[in-house]
């Protein structure tokens, strides 16, 4: 059905392809996420999990799209077969753009990230995007705030799960795109929003050197956009930080 498949990555959850849905030349590339059948799982358990996860991801994306959050558009959903096709984003992950401190990875962290056309030259990776690092942090904060105002919780906010569009590809839409809603769910609880932010804070700390000022500017932008809701989230975020790793081990 899909044409010209190119496998980009295999994560724990799915195989990710760059593909075309139509033979038409004008057709645009899509990102095809295939949650393949897991042989180790009982067939009926696997089928129901796959169906609900694909549907859940599509639902979260739609909810974001309706509320004006910048996420990839949906191109095709086939929940029983574990297929989800979304818009192909021309650009790079924020993780790459910030230059991660980690040992170079052999493969993308979760396989769910479409990384494409990364500049090979030794210029600063952000240069072709015409965005300063600070402006990028503001974009991140604003997008997350928009998503939380729509009561969508991402569930796996990391710098790998955000992309910056190349300016030429689509001038009108927002530049920063949140991706991989595989763990997303709907919730209006302050707790869930705070945990979402805490996950991002930990991701910044573990992948980028001297991330503290970066994350602070993300939070500042988030605060401005959240308006009245900010105080409750801020208070809970402080609590969540104190909790640290969930619990001390018992037994």
């Amino acid at each position: 059905m899909a044409l010209a498949l190119t496998l980009i990555a295999q994560g724990a959850e799915a195989k990710v392809y760059r593909a075309r849905l139509h033979a038409d030349r004008a057709a645009q590339d899509v990102l095809l996420k295939h949650r393949f059948h897991k042989q180790y799982r009982h067939a009926s358990l696997d089928a129901s999990l796959t169906r609900s996860r694909v549907a859940g991801e599509a639902r979260a994306l739609i909810k974001c799209l309706r509320s004006g959050v910048s996420v990839p558009g949906i191109r095709m959903v086939d929940a029983p077969n574990g297929l989800l096709a979304i818009e192909w984003i021309q650009g790079s992950s924020v993780r790459f753009l910030l230059g991660s401190s980690d040992e170079p990875l052999d493969e993308p962290v979760d396989g769910d990230l479409p990384v494409s056309d990364q500049p090979q030259e030794h210029q600063h990776p952000l240069e072709p995007y015409g965005v300063s690092q600070d402006a990028l942090m503001v974009l991140i904060g604003v997008e997350i705030a928009k998503m939380h105002l729509a009561d969508v919780i991402h569930g796996d906010l990391t710098t790998s799960n955000m992309m910056l569009r190349l300016p030429s590809s689509s001038p009108s839409t927002s530049r920063l795109v949140l991706i991989d809603f595989g763990l997303a769910y709907t919730s209006s609880l302050v707790e869930d929003k705070a945990v979402d932010l805490y996950v991002l804070e930990r991701a910044f700390a573990s992948t980028h050197p001297d991330s503290e000022p970066l994350f602070t500017s993300v939070l500042n932008a988030y605060q401005t956009r959240m308006g009245k809701q900010w105080h409750a989230v801020a208070r809970r975020l402080d609590e969540v930080r104190l909790r640290g790793r969930k619990r001390s081990m018992v037994g």
Binding site: Y40, L105, V109
Partner: peptide
């Protein structure tokens, strides 16, 4: 057994994918 072991294998697979 099928349900809890599937959960355990899934999180193990996530960890494997994460660290390669």
């Amino acid at each position: 057994q099928e349900t809890v072991f599937a959960m355990l294998v899934e999180i193990t697979e996530r960890a494997m994918a994460h660290i390669g």
